[in-house]
């Protein structure tokens, strides 16, 4: 993006923003009555017993909370950009974690299940996703070439495939493959069925990514190649795809990150992946939320790691192209 070459006044330091935020946040805190909070108790020398401090106490606490919020924002506003980002991230993270405290989670229980969630759940999630993305990529190459070819059969089959598998909810595909195939006499295990559903569905979506990648290789490359006597297949394999693949890899990485979470859908057919374990491990002792929160956190961490890898891959290809 284009960065401005003149420095504008910072929004968070403008008086109307500061006053506006103070009023808005104050009103919100007043509305939700946070008198009986940590802050309320800290302020008890001023307002007396928070519980019996009435509207006065409620107002003072709300005002002080809003004031702290505004001061915090104004201070962060003075930071350089990188530090600003870090500070805001940390505060939001802290806020999210305090929500976890509100749930009053049983940490010992989480600890006892964590290792199994990782070795069984994360492992299964990752390998189901990884196999599926590989198969989906192969389907997508075939689909894209078929969609770009003159051959009517190839185009018809490819467009039928993408239309069908993009037109059905993934969850439904999972059920149909797992429950439908046995009726035709093919009993499939849950994991192969899940991989099949994920591959077919993502292959259909990724066909479009691959098609766009192939089409973004310039016409001149086709002409240069064909003019030298390379046939269609040779041109595709040796000239076009090698140039298209660097364009295709970054969006494929995004698809992989999305698939990591969509792979949770195969939990419905009993694959012991991360979602399945998050849903079932806490059932016996009614500690649902412990396992769900742990699973959620693991998904999030996995995604952060993959996004970091993804951005390095993107940077790598960006550098290569320039």
């Amino acid at each position: 993006m284009y960065a401005d070459t003149v420095i504008a006044d910072k929004l968070v330091h403008k008086p109307h923003f500061i006053i506006g935020l103070l009023v808005a946040a104050g009103a919100l805190f007043f509305l939700f009555n946070i008198t009986d909070s940590f802050l309320g108790h800290v302020l008890s020398p001023v307002i007396g017993d928070p519980a019996s401090s009435g509207l006065y106490g409620r107002f003072v606490v709300a005002f002080m909370a809003a004031l702290l919020l505004v001061i915090n924002i104004v201070i962060i506003g003075f930071f350089p950009r990188k530090l600003q980002i870090l500070a805001v991230w940390m505060e939001l993270l802290l806020l999210a974690l305090t929500l976890g405290i509100v749930f009053n989670l049983d940490l010992a229980f989480i600890k006892s299940k964590l290792w199994f969630m990782i070795t069984q759940g994360v492992f299964t999630t990752l390998y189901v996703s990884a196999i599926s993305i590989v198969i989906a990529s192969i389907l997508a190459i075939i689909g894209a070439v078929a969609k770009l070819s003159d051959n009517g059969f190839a185009f018809a089959i490819a467009s039928f495939y993408t239309s069908l598998f993009r037109g059905l909810p993934l969850l439904m595909q999972v059920y149909i493959i797992y429950l439908g195939l046995p009726q035709l006499g093919y009993v499939v295990d849950a994991i192969p069925a899940g991989i099949a559903a994920l591959s077919l569905c993502y292959g259909a979506y990724m066909t479009e990514i691959f098609r766009a990648g192939i089409e973004s290789v310039s016409r001149g490359q086709w002409e240069g190649s064909r003019a030298m006597g390379f046939k269609f297949g040779l041109t595709m394999r040796k000239i076009i795809l090698p140039q298209a693949i660097p364009l295709i890899i970054p969006p494929t990485g995004n698809q992989f990150i999305a698939m990591l979470k969509d792979s949770s859908l195969v939990s419905v057919i009993g694959v012991w992946e991360l979602m399945f374990l998050s849903r079932t491990l806490g059932v016996k002792t009614f500690q649902h939320i412990e396992m769900l929160m742990t699973g959620a956190l693991i998904y999030w961490i996995l995604t952060i790691i993959l996004e970091a890898i993804q951005s390095r891959i993107e940077a790598h290809y960006r550098k290569q192209r320039s």
Partner: peptide
């Protein structure tokens, strides 16, 4: 038949 294009069309990879 050799052909030389205005835009070269070399294979960049």
């Amino acid at each position: 038949i050799g052909m030389v294009f205005q835009s070269f069309n070399l294979f960049p990879h």
